[in-house]
Protein backbone atom coordinates (compact mmCIF):
# COMPACT_ATOMS: atom_id res chain seq x y z
CA UNK A 1 0.00 0.00 0.00
CA UNK A 2 1.35 3.37 -0.95
CA UNK A 3 1.11 6.16 1.56
CA UNK A 4 0.53 9.57 0.09
CA UNK A 5 1.06 11.74 3.12
CA UNK A 6 3.98 11.45 5.45
CA UNK A 7 3.42 11.51 9.17
CA UNK A 8 4.11 14.49 11.36
CA UNK A 9 6.62 14.39 14.16
CA UNK A 10 9.15 12.22 12.37
CA UNK A 11 12.85 12.91 12.59
CA UNK A 12 13.68 15.59 9.99
CA UNK A 13 15.79 14.44 7.07
CA UNK A 14 19.28 15.95 7.07
CA UNK A 15 21.28 16.86 4.00
CA UNK A 16 23.62 14.33 2.46
CA UNK A 17 26.68 16.30 3.59
CA UNK A 18 25.35 16.54 7.14
CA UNK A 19 24.50 12.85 7.17
CA UNK A 20 27.92 11.77 5.96
CA UNK A 21 29.67 13.89 8.50
CA UNK A 22 27.37 13.49 11.51
CA UNK A 23 26.40 9.98 11.60
CA UNK A 24 23.59 9.28 13.93
CA UNK A 25 20.77 10.64 11.81
CA UNK A 26 18.37 8.02 10.44
CA UNK A 27 16.75 10.19 7.79
CA UNK A 28 18.51 11.85 4.88
CA UNK A 29 17.46 14.03 1.98
CA UNK A 30 19.02 13.54 -1.44
CA UNK A 31 19.08 16.36 -4.00
CA UNK A 32 18.97 15.60 -7.75
CA UNK A 33 22.69 16.24 -8.27
CA UNK A 34 23.82 14.12 -5.31
CA UNK A 35 25.17 10.61 -5.71
CA UNK A 36 22.82 8.01 -4.23
CA UNK A 37 25.73 5.57 -4.10
CA UNK A 38 27.32 7.65 -1.32
CA UNK A 39 24.62 6.25 0.95
CA UNK A 40 25.22 2.60 0.15
CA UNK A 41 27.62 1.92 3.08
CA UNK A 42 25.02 3.33 5.50
CA UNK A 43 21.73 1.86 4.27
CA UNK A 44 21.19 -0.44 7.23
CA UNK A 45 20.84 2.44 9.68
CA UNK A 46 18.59 4.60 7.52
CA UNK A 47 14.83 4.59 8.10
CA UNK A 48 13.98 7.27 5.54
CA UNK A 49 15.55 8.55 2.37
CA UNK A 50 13.78 11.53 0.90
CA UNK A 51 14.57 12.16 -2.76
CA UNK A 52 13.95 15.74 -3.83
CA UNK A 53 12.15 16.63 -7.06
CA UNK A 54 12.48 20.42 -7.28
CA UNK A 55 11.06 20.21 -10.82
CA UNK A 56 9.00 17.28 -12.04
CA UNK A 57 10.85 17.24 -15.37
CA UNK A 58 14.17 16.50 -13.68
CA UNK A 59 14.32 12.71 -13.79
CA UNK A 60 17.54 12.08 -11.86
CA UNK A 61 15.60 11.04 -8.77
CA UNK A 62 14.24 8.00 -10.63
CA UNK A 63 17.77 6.67 -11.02
CA UNK A 64 18.62 7.52 -7.41
CA UNK A 65 15.64 5.49 -6.22
CA UNK A 66 16.50 2.45 -8.29
CA UNK A 67 20.13 2.54 -7.24
CA UNK A 68 19.10 2.58 -3.59
CA UNK A 69 16.64 -0.29 -3.96
CA UNK A 70 19.08 -2.28 -6.08
CA UNK A 71 21.61 -1.88 -3.27
CA UNK A 72 19.14 -3.48 -0.89
CA UNK A 73 17.68 -0.46 0.85
CA UNK A 74 14.43 -1.59 2.49
CA UNK A 75 13.42 1.51 4.43
CA UNK A 76 11.05 4.27 3.43
CA UNK A 77 11.88 5.90 0.09
CA UNK A 78 9.99 9.12 -0.37
CA UNK A 79 9.54 11.35 -3.42
CA UNK A 80 9.25 14.94 -2.23
CA UNK A 81 8.61 18.16 -4.06
CA UNK A 82 7.09 18.76 -7.49
CA UNK A 83 5.52 15.32 -7.42
CA UNK A 84 2.50 15.10 -9.72
CA UNK A 85 -0.11 12.43 -10.18
CA UNK A 86 1.06 11.63 -13.71
CA UNK A 87 4.54 10.68 -12.51
CA UNK A 88 3.81 8.57 -9.46
CA UNK A 89 3.26 5.25 -11.26
CA UNK A 90 6.79 5.38 -12.69
CA UNK A 91 8.12 6.57 -9.33
CA UNK A 92 6.58 3.57 -7.64
CA UNK A 93 8.19 1.28 -10.23
CA UNK A 94 11.55 2.85 -9.40
CA UNK A 95 11.13 1.98 -5.74
CA UNK A 96 9.43 4.93 -4.09
CA UNK A 97 6.87 3.87 -1.51
CA UNK A 98 5.74 7.24 -0.19
CA UNK A 99 5.03 10.60 -1.78
CA UNK A 100 5.20 14.07 -0.31
CA UNK A 101 3.88 16.33 -3.06
CA UNK A 102 4.07 20.08 -2.56
CA UNK A 103 0.51 20.36 -3.81
CA UNK A 104 -2.00 17.80 -2.58
CA UNK A 105 -3.04 15.20 -5.13
CA UNK A 106 -6.60 14.20 -5.85
CA UNK A 107 -6.97 10.78 -4.15
CA UNK A 108 -9.19 9.40 -6.95
CA UNK A 109 -6.58 10.36 -9.56
CA UNK A 110 -3.84 8.77 -7.46
CA UNK A 111 -5.79 5.55 -7.22
CA UNK A 112 -6.42 5.53 -10.98
CA UNK A 113 -2.77 6.27 -11.77
CA UNK A 114 -1.45 3.49 -9.58
CA UNK A 115 -3.95 0.98 -10.96
CA UNK A 116 -3.40 2.00 -14.58
CA UNK A 117 -0.86 -0.50 -15.86
CA UNK A 118 -1.89 -4.15 -16.11
CA UNK A 119 1.69 -5.38 -16.60
CA UNK A 120 5.15 -3.99 -17.38
CA UNK A 121 7.52 -4.56 -20.25
CA UNK A 122 10.70 -4.24 -18.24
CA UNK A 123 11.98 -5.19 -14.83
CA UNK A 124 12.48 -2.29 -12.40
CA UNK A 125 12.64 -1.90 -8.61
CA UNK A 126 9.04 -2.74 -7.71
CA UNK A 127 9.36 -6.49 -7.98
CA UNK A 128 6.83 -6.65 -10.84
CA UNK A 129 7.29 -9.63 -13.15
CA UNK A 130 8.13 -8.29 -16.63
CA UNK A 131 5.99 -9.30 -19.60
CA UNK A 132 8.80 -11.34 -21.18
CA UNK A 133 8.89 -13.51 -18.08
CA UNK A 134 5.11 -13.93 -18.11
CA UNK A 135 5.40 -15.05 -21.73
CA UNK A 136 8.02 -17.68 -21.01
CA UNK A 137 7.19 -18.77 -17.48
Amino acid sequence: MVEHIHSDGEEPAVTLDAFLSQSNATAVRLEPDEDARALIPHLDRLALIEVAFPKFRDGRGYSSARILREAGYAGELRAQGDVLVDQIAYMKRCGFDTFAPEKALNPADVEAALARWPEHYQGAADGAVPIWKLRHG
Binding site: R57, G59, Y62, I131
Partner: peptide
Protein backbone atom coordinates in the same frame (compact mmCIF):
# COMPACT_ATOMS: atom_id res chain seq x y z
CA UNK B 1 10.99 -1.16 -28.41
CA UNK B 2 9.43 -3.20 -25.64
CA UNK B 3 12.21 -2.44 -23.16
CA UNK B 4 12.00 1.30 -23.83
CA UNK B 5 8.19 1.56 -23.82
CA UNK B 6 6.94 3.18 -20.61
CA UNK B 7 10.42 2.85 -19.12
CA UNK B 8 9.93 4.10 -15.55
CA UNK B 9 13.48 5.38 -15.06
CA UNK B 10 14.06 6.96 -18.47
CA UNK B 11 10.92 8.97 -19.19
CA UNK B 12 12.27 12.26 -17.84
CA UNK B 13 15.70 12.27 -19.45
CA UNK B 14 17.68 15.48 -19.93
Amino acid sequence: RQWSSFHPEFSYLP
